[in-house]
Amino acid sequence: MSACWVVLGASSAMARAFSRQAAARGHSLILAGRDTLDLARDAADAVARGAASAEVAVWDTRLPETHAALAALAAESSGPLGVAVFAGAMPEQAVMDDDPSLISGLISDSFSGLAETVHRLAPLIEARGGTVLGIGSVAGDRGRLGNYLYGAAKAAFHTYLAGLRNRLGRRGAHVVTVKPGFVDTAMTWGLPGLFLVAAPEDVARACWRAIDKKRNVIYAPWFWMIIMLIIRLVPERIFKRLKI
């Protein structure tokens, strides 16, 4: 059945790949983000690839009025409502160590701004049915020296999605948490020390498989499940001395 998908942070490479697969399935799309000129190109692309329709919405994690406007726009669509959350920011840990005032912005971009928006859309999903897909991160599974502020925001988002799953599941709607490993996007371009880097198209495919199969929590690619299992099993008294 054709649905309407709201894509938050729609101009990221992963979101773009996700939207294209949504378009190929004939869904309609609301592409939400800051760079609306660029999103207009994405919308044209989605329509050319088979989307029933594609609209652009101004949306900024730090501007609550855009969250309400987006919810109003989504209310005008019909059919099951999907919400795919790809927005997020990964500032360097060292930069935030030097200037802790940046932390609240990180929390807005990677957690609270997302939760606020999804929370405004949740009643629509309860009424119409649908799916929430949230992009978390393997970084949220355990606090590590290199990026625990980003990891903390992602961990909060994981917990939010788990609670939302509990809430929406009662109404027949579903919530998928996706924890990608390293993905080849603008966010990771040029970062040193990456390994097993996945293509955004592969992560998007994994997202759609998880939606179709109503999976709760997945890692993408799947082998990160094993890597993170091992990392989570390391006792804290040892882990606190590691530099990974």
Binding site: S11, A13, R16, D35, L37, D38, R41, T185, A186, W189
Partner: peptide, 16 residues
Amino acid sequence: RVRRADGRLARPEKAA
């Protein structure tokens, strides 16, 4: 793979 180069590459995802 005979000719190679090392250098700085940019790979923009937005037209702007």
